[in-house]
């Protein structure tokens, strides 16, 4: 009786607290994120040119157009290519770096700062750096590669190699980002867990599988989900490095959205594409949450 009452009062206290804790962030999200998203949904059923303040109702026209738009489907394929190429390799590399950086070695803070350098530089400057380095005729990197006997490639100017080059730059740019998150996760794993495993006679590899990975589950889940969402929305590096070219070989979905919305000023169609993209990303995220057994907190 008494215990039950105490429990309800704790529950009520938590409910009240949750309300106040969530109020600021949820009101800001509602106003500046969800309202525009809802607006976009409404607009995706309209003809909306940025040149015109009025929007004529268009029914499903934008969505019907999308189904038959070959270039949109090309963008979908290119986006999947980018994701498949950049996410797995990127996460494995950043986990390796994080494990390495977690070792108590001298000079580690300098190393970490170096690994983080690409993360803190802006895409505008990164594109300038890489298009200089990768220029097939006068670029320093291609010059050295050629001198070392590698076959010449046109990199960003080649329909075959532009996407691998964009993926490589994306990995280079983001590896430090994921490393920092994973490192924070690694550091909150209790040392006693490792000691217990050591006493049980577990080797380094075994400790990694049976202690590190399970303890890192929530962090890894976060890194995987965020990476997938971000790579489905990849825009900046494509915009500054290749403008989706050559021949649309690096044109991703968000670049295509940008092309329609900002270059052709057809925001109605851009909104429809954005909504389709959203549904796809949403489903993939739900699947990932299932796979990682998100709701089970140990």
């Amino acid at each position: 009786m008494n215990i039950a009452r105490k429990r309800t009062s704790v529950m009520n206290r938590q409910k009240r607290a949750a309300f106040w804790f969530l109020l600021p962030s949820m009101s800001i999200l509602a106003l500046f994120v969800f309202w525009p998203i809802a607006d976009l949904f409404w607009l995706s059923f309209h003809r909306w040119s940025l040149l015109d303040a009025n929007h004529a109702y268009a029914g499903l026209a934008n969505y019907v157009k999308l189904v038959h738009d070959e270039r949109f489907w090309n963008a979908v394929v290119r986006t999947v290519y980018f994701t498949a190429g950049s996410v797995p390799v990127g996460i494995v590399l950043s986990l390796a770096l994080a494990l390495l950086a977690n070792e108590p070695l001298k000079g580690m803070s300098a190393f970490k700062a170096i690994y983080f350098l690409p993360v803190i530089s802006s895409f505008a400057i990164i594109s300038i750096i890489w298009s200089f380095l990768l220029d097939p005729d006068i670029g320093l990197l291609s010059y050295w590669l050629k001198a070392a006997g590698f076959p010449a490639s046109a990199w960003l100017r080649s329909t075959t190699w532009a996407m691998p080059a964009v993926i490589a730059v994306a990995i280079w740019k983001n590896v430090g980002f994921n490393m920092v998150i994973l490192l924070a996760g690694l550091q909150s794993i209790s040392a006693s867990l490792y000691e217990a495993a050591k006493i049980d006679g577990a080797g380094a590899l075994q400790r990694f599988w049976s202690v590190t990975l399970p303890a890192l589950r929530q962090t890894l889940l976060f890194v995987v989900i965020i990476s997938v969402i971000a790579s489905f929305q990849v825009f900046d590096q494509v915009y500054v490095m290749t403008r989706g070219g050559p021949l649309n070989s690096t044109e991703t979905v968000v670049y295509y959205i940008y092309h329609h919305g900002f270059e052709l000023l057809d925001m109605g169609y851009a909104s429809a594409i954005a909504w389709v993209l959203f549904v796809v990303v949403f489903l993939i995220t739900l699947l990932q949450l299932r796979l990682f057994r998100f709701n089970e907190t140990d």
Partner: peptide, 15 residues
Amino acid sequence: PTNLTGAEADKLFQS
């Protein structure tokens, strides 16, 4: 070269 941007063309001429 093919698939050249204006900036790349300028770099080729300048170098």
